[in-house]
Nucleic acid binder design. Sequence first.
RNA 1: GGUUCGGUAGCUCAGCUGGAUAGAGCAUCAGCCUUCUAAGCUGAGGGUCAUUGGUUCGAAUCCAAUCCGAAUCACCA
Length: 591
Amino acid sequence: MSLVKNIQKSLIDALTSIYPNPFSEKDFQINQTKDEFEGDYTIVLFSLVKSLKSSPELIGKQIGEHLITRYPELFTNYNIIKGFLNLTIADDYWNNLLHQHHHDNCFGKHAMNGKKVMVEYSSPNTNKPLHLGHLRNNFLGWSVAEILKANGYEVLKSCIVNDRGIHICKSMIAWQRFADGATPATTNKKGDHFVGDYYVKFNDEYKKEVKELVEKGMNEAEAEKNAPIMLATQQMLNDWEAGKSEVIDLWKKMNSWVYEGFDFTYKTIGSDFDKTYYESDTYLLGKDIVQTGLDKGVFFRKEDGSVWIDLTADGLDEKLVLRKDGTSVYMTQDIGLAKQKYDQYKIDQSIYVIGDEQNYHMKVLKLIAQKLGLPYANDIYHLSYGMVELPTGKMKSREGTVVDADDLVDEMIATAKHHTEALGKVKDFTTEELEVLYKTIGLGAMKFYLLRVDPKKKMIFNPEESIDFHGFTGPFIQYTFARIKSILRKETLTKNTKNESLLLPLEKEVLFTLEQFPSIISEAAKELNPSTLANYLFGLAKTFNSFYAEHSIGNAESEEKKQLRLQISVMTSTVLQSGMQMMGINVPERM
RNA sequence: GGUUCGGUAGCUCAGCUGGAUAGAGCAUCAGCCUUCUAAGCUGAGGGUCAUUGGUUCGAAUCCAAUCCGAAUCACCA
């Protein structure tokens, strides 16, 4: 049980034995005591004043006395300042915590709870390479999955590949017309970049054609519809849906190039999936559900034959679920796929890691599922995250203003190499060891940078100022870990005994922070927010570094102190490592 | 126009289930490596928490209005 829970419990006991009223943990607040006051945790007494009809000083004194006499193993002291009851936690509590958990690799993790969750993330289009926005999505999805696992959930990671549609045909048409048979192999280009170039080429050509038509006197909207290359693309989409073999073959060929590129990137950044869905397989799903909806009167058919749902009563609009020609729209297949996931895996919750531009779509999806009375409707959860923007505004792949994922990864690894070489601490490493290290640090910096911000907030990335390696960063935490490991190579933990000596303030501060790790993991899962973890780990590393600077471990005042500090170091390294792993970040033994 | 989200230090962000003098990192300035890794530590300066009003013993946090920014509201995906 966490310390805060312990305090809550003892406080309720104190209150109920002193006063006649019933109490719950909602009746008071427990905060960390501010540095300038003596104590560890603080009870705010004001909220109790009204119901107890007493002064804060008196209430505080009664509670304080009760707590230190009834729970001496938890509290040793108290003081009251202006309505705040500051409690000092007994050293013995910290010593017990350390004694029990310093060698516990599972500290903070929860036992399996029997619940199954699917996390869908990444979801790329097969017409262009991954960019910075995709990285945020991948790191978030991965991290949330790991955090849920640590909380006892069985997690399935899934990915829906957007591999069909007009946008895919655009790169296909451009390749047909302009490539002259070139392939990734003949041009020595990564497959996804190769295909992406033709997507850009399409748009250049399209713009040119539209301009020409407008110059000939056509209005812009007409020109956009009638540009020859667009007409050809439309035709290609029709041919694809009709199963025309040469189109299908081209589609397969170009997609395979893209997948080769994606596989490389996913491997580098450490993304993987238990199940991959392809839109070319799922795009017809959900049509049967439309019929059910019509039968139930949830949907209605317009005169032209199209099928809709009226959500105006819920403050939304009318939404199309089936076109007049009977073909399905995005919403249709999303409903179908949601059902398939549920049927296939019997999941208790389905988390979709999708950008906030789709908030409306996901809201409608859930609402439709609810109105249809589908059993999994309430278990659909949209983990919405903000876009990554440049100082100049949104990234647009069509205009080439994107930060490419592969480029950024390379740059980060190169920067890690640069820093490492400049410091010259690992000159004895082999080439292979160095490569692993550069990757660990470079990717660590990048992942931490993208995960430390609250997912739902949009973030600004300035490519001019490359991602930092100092301060509130991944390498800072990795460095703290490496430092501890360095000590542990020199000094050995010989005794597993419980400390009895008086704890110094910084020793206590590290223990105080370590104690919160289990609560942080729960909170991160509850909020589906890795930034909670990132902030915590940074705080822990910072506290440890202060402790490290102030107190010698190898040359401690006494053998007992040395063992105490080694235990603190071991436990800190374990927590740093397991926390970073939940963000998909490795920690190096040396750096 | 409707809906939703956001506005905190020069920059990037914490804090938001109301609590003590609003916190970090970067950047700037001043210190600390002949003992465990200086990718570190210690300190300084830097704020009308968008604005106005309200609720409260107490508001960055809750409510209302206003201003600014973003997303979205397609027989696109």
